[in-house]
Write a protein that binds this DNA or RNA. Structure first.
Length: 909
RNA sequence: GGGCGGUUGGCUCAGCGGUUAGAGCGCUUGCUUCACACGCAAGAAGUCACAGGUUCGAUUCCUGUACCGCCCACCA
């Protein structure tokens, strides 16, 4: 029962059931692979549960899948751990929005407990969309190990990590200026702020001095003036010498504030005098600390001006800005306004402008954690691909700041800090705090049950940074942790280098004592064809899910990888998938064709011999070409150059195997049935299946399907191509399957090279004949007589005859002095000639020949210059010199021949 | 202000110290050749951003310039 190939390539029918087959058989689970094998682990960057698969995910996961499938086929005990992260702020926002539109309820109306229930409900319903999409893409994760950052065990890990750091004195609570998102109502870490260029204004304000006169300050945020507690100038600024120590009466709030000096003030910017707002600016906060200034907060957590804002109380921050400018203008205190290109910080989740805000938050002291992470990169224990990211990583770690980890939202890991009401009443705030990984019943100090938990939750990244070991059960000492940690490779985009990669390294050292992975592969960002990031708001999104549905996951994966040089950003045009789609079709049809040949030859089942022997030169040629490709693919993958590997497979399969070898196989079909059955078919299938194997990590579905179908035509070594043995070049040390060509014998290799040359010669002859025929508008299929200096015989003649359409093979010696033949003879390197019934289009041909002659002469001149250069002769390697000389001679001959052609054509006129 | 990446045929991108710089799409011409028109065959098309330097030799290495993009930085 031979399974037939469907007549046309159709991604849907090919992909149907394939993934289920893999999963059912458990090919992706690490346990399936033999014990004692070397492990290879890739940890997936957990996509967040609110997300849909976008092009960045598609690229990222395809790269990981390629690595993991390749390593699996190489025989490693491979594990790819999948998961999702709870994305605190993003998820809370999504659910809140849903709630509002569906039930007309705000989060606060619902209350914390019930809101979190709602989030869980939402997560159950929508949280695994991305997982389904990853499966559609073909990601061969071990899905039974799917983890979620809010899982009980992972939450436990988060608590343990917190307690560990707290007890070590690396976590502290402090009042600081942090980034605050008024829309999300929470603190953000430095990394969670994105900067956007904005055309805004620089306002020059005149602050009245008590003694009379004014001092001018410049600001982009005039509304913060209400919280000013000083004006600062540079101590060495002569212009302001006379103002030092004077007092300013702040307009609207009538606060008297001093003019102070601070070295942080730039003399050359604005007016050289700065309004100092310690509660609303990072730099001013430092100045405020240095000079013991009061901290006046003028707005609340929602960006609304508070009671300290006097007459502006209740106004939104941006409205307030407008109003205050109006008022200042009225009072004659606005000196001038000038346009200013500003960079404003925005929330990376909702995009609204972030306020520097004074509040009490939890921080991690990062410097001590950074130390081993720095060392790992410096000593190349941790390697980056491409290497340049190492510098970026290190620079960030050298300058690392403390990490604000508390968030004023509800969805996330609640900070495992507890307060005892009684102890606080008795001993003050600092005494009544204790941390505990488990929920305590009573205060460990006084035994009171009047305890309550810190209301804040932790930054999502505080759980993500534990990922490489929390997924294996840490803090428990599990078998998994022992076997699979540290992992081997992390694949990610540059965007989360700091968010995630650097922090994972720090966590790895701090909590497990070992680097979490050895390779960090950083791929480019996917952008649209104008270089913009793809985003919904720009409307330039190309949806990978749609491409998968329409053209198949394989087409998408192929196209994406094929055009992505390692580490380079990818600019996608809307039709980028075409290359992949066309290639899939080609692969499909070539396979179908091969199945036809097998059927036609009436061979029940093709057997591969122990080793190939007594082959003709086309077979030796294709095998040696295959071998070259295997080598290139292996070398490229070894250094994560996916595109190089894939493109060389593409090139070989299409332009060597299909264009030439499959055409040659048609010649065999017309004759030599015995040889066809015993030699050609095995070689054909062997080459084809080997290519399928190499292609499998890149385009898993089609290759699996073909493997399944081919298992009825020949011996496929395994049930699934997923677990077949990865091809090795026979010049490498171990043998490919069935020991085919496994022994490296000098004689054999040389012979293959020689036969390869022979094949190349035939390709050249065929191409030349076709070229000439096309030039003279002779159909390729029309047989014509050709003259050769060395007359091809036997198989060579058969091939040339069939592929180029040759009637009689004639020898040059048979040529009379007919000048007409000289033209033909010389058309390409004087190797061959042919006779036509008539020569048409002579003058057009003359132009072509003259043009070609000119080109060759130019080239000859270049070589001549080179050869006449004594230094070249002296210093260039012998090899190069010889090559150049040979080239020159060849060129001279060709030019001579062309000259004769022109003479002939001229005579003919 | 620092750091990084890019600039190669009409478009999207590979590549490389030494054959006449490649691919896909598009284009031209010819093919209903019995696997494939998502195809076959043949072809046109590039002063490899610009200026210097190193070298026997540079599109490739170095320096500078221009433009595009990214990241980092408390000049309000």
């Amino acid at each position: 029962m031979k399974e037939k190939f469907p007549p046309q390539y159709d991604s849907r029918s090919i992909e149907t059931g394939v993934y289920e087959f893999w999963e059912k058989k458990g090919f992706f689970s690490a346990e399936r692979h033999k014990k004692g094998r070397k492990k290879y682990v890739v940890v997936i960057p957990p996509p967040n549960i609110t997300g849909f698969l976008h092009m960045g995910h598609a690229l990222n996961n395809t790269i990981q899948d390629i690595i993991i499938r390749w390593k699996r086929m190489e025989g490693f005990n491979t594990l790819w751990v999948p998961g999702t992260d709870h994305a605190g702020i993003a998820t809370q926002n999504v659910v809140e929005k849903n709630l509002l539109s569906e039930k007309k309820l705000s989060r606060k109306e619902l209350g914390r407990e019930r809101f979190i229930e709602e989030v869980w409900k939402w997560k159950e319903q929508y949280g695994s969309r991305i997982i389904f999409q990853l499966k559609k893409l073909g990601a061969s994760c071990d899905w039974r190990r799917l983890r979620f950052t809010m899982d009980e065990k992972l939450s436990r890990a988060v608590n343990e990590a917190f307690v560990h750091l707290y007890n070590k004195g690396l976590i502290y609570k402090g009042e600081r200026i942090i980034h605050w998102c008024c829309r999300c109502g929470t603190a953000l870490s430095d990394e969670e702020v994105e900067y956007r260029d904005e055309d805004s204004f620089l306002y020059y304000l005149r602050y009245p001095l008590i003694d009379g006169g004014f001092i001018q300050v410049a600001t982009t945020r005039p509304e913060t003036m209400l919280g000013d507690t000083a004006v600062a100038v540079n101590p060495s600024d002569k212009r302001y010498k006379k103002f030092q120590g004077k007092k300013v009466k702040l307009p609207f709030v009538d606060r008297v504030i001093p003019v102070i000096t601070d070295a942080a003030v730039e003399k050359d910017f604005g007016t050289g005098a700065v309004k100092v707002t310690p509660a609303h600016d990072h730099a001013d906060f430092d100045i405020g600390k240095r000079h013991n200034l009061p901290f006046v907060t003028v707005m609340d957590g929602e960006g609304v001006m508070n009671e300290n804002a006097g007459m502006f109380k209740g106004l939104d921050r941006f409205k307030c800005r407008e109003e205050i400018i109006k008022e200042l203008e009225k009072a004659g205190l606005l000196a001038r306004t000038e346009p200013y290109a500003n960079r404003v910080g925005c929330c990376y989740r909702c995009g609204s402008v972030v306020e520097p805000y004074l509040s009490t938050q939890w921080f991690v002291n990062m410097k001590p954690l950074a130390k081993p992470a720095i060392e790992a990169a410096e000593k190349d224990i941790l390697r980056f691909y491409p290497e340049r990211w190492k510098k970026v990583y290190l620079n960030w770690l050298y300058e690392i700041k403390d990490w604000c980890i508390s968030r004023q939202i509800w969805w996330g890991h609640r900070i495992p800090v507890w307060y005892c009401k009684r102890c606080i009443e008795k001993d003050g705030n600092e005494k009544g705090i204790f941390v505990s990984a488990d929920k305590p019943d009573v205060c460990p100090v006084c035994g009171s049950d009047e305890i309550y938990q810190d209301p804040d939750v932790l930054d999502t990244w505080f759980s993500s940074w534990l990922w490489p070991f929390s997924v294996f059960g840490w803090p428990e000492k599990t078998k998994d942790l022992e076997v699979y940690y540290p992992t081997n490779t992390l694949v990610t985009a540059q965007e989360i280098l700091f968010f995630w990669v650097a922090r994972m390294v720090m966590a790895g050292y701090e909590f497990v004592g070992e680097v979490p992975f050895e390779n960090v592969l950083i791929h480019g960002t996917v952008r649209d064809k104008t270089g913009k990031k793809m985003s919904k708001s720009l409307g330039n999104v190309i949806d990978p899910v749609k491409i998968i549905e329409d053209y198949g996951a394989d087409s998408l994966r192929f196209s994406l990888i094929s055009m992505t040089a390692s580490g380079q950003d990818v600019f996608l045009s809307p039709t980028f998938y075409i290359k992949g789609r066309n290639f899939m079709n080609k692969v499909w049809n070539a396979s179908r064709f091969i199945s036809f040949i097998v059927e036609k030859a009436e061979v029940k089942r093709v057997e591969f011999p122990e080793r190939f022997e007594n082959l003709n030169f086309p077979e030796l040629w294709i095998l040696s070409e295959l071998d070259k490709v295997i080598k290139v693919v292996n070398d490229s993958l070894e250094c994560f150059r996916m595109n190089e590997a894939l493109n060389s497979i593409y090139d070989f399969f299409w332009h060597t195997f299909c264009d030439w070898y499959l055409e040659i196989s048609k010649v065999y079909q017309e004759q030599e049935t015995e040889y066809l059955r015993e030699k050609v078919l095995p070689v054909l299938l062997y080459v084809h299946l080997t290519v399928m194997k190499m292609l499998h990590p890149f385009t898993p579905f089609i290759t699996e399907k073909i493997w399944q179908i081919f298992s009825s035509y020949c011996v496929t070594e395994t049930e699934s191509i997923t677990v077949s043995r990865w091809p090795a070049s026979f010049t490498l040390s171990y043998a490919p399957h069935l020991n085919l060509l496994s022994r490296k014998e000098k004689g054999e290799e040389k012979e293959m090279e020689k036969e390869g040359e022979r094949m190349k010669e035939i390709i050249e002859i065929v191409t030349t004949i076709r070229d000439i025929k096309t030039r003279f508008s002779v159909p390729i299929v029309k047989p014509i007589d050709c003259y050769f200096d060395r007359k091809p015989e036997g198989l060579s003649a058969a091939l040339i005859s069939r592929l180029a359409g040759v009637g009689n093979f004639l020898s040059f010696d048979a040529l009379a002095d007919d000048a007409g033949n000289v033209l033909i003879k010389n058309l390409r390197q004087g190797r061959l000639g042919m006779s036509f019934e008539g020569i048409i289009n002579i003058s057009a041909e003359r132009v072509k020949i003259i043009k070609e002659k000119g080109k060759l002469e130019g080239f000859l001149e270049k070589i001549d210059r080179k050869l006449n250069n004594p230094e070249f002769l002296e210093k260039a390697p012998e090899e190069v010199r010889e090559k150049e000389k040979a080239k020159k001679q060849q060129l001279q001959e060709s030019i001579e021949n062309l000259k004769k052609d022109i003479e002939f054509l001229d005579a003919k006129r």
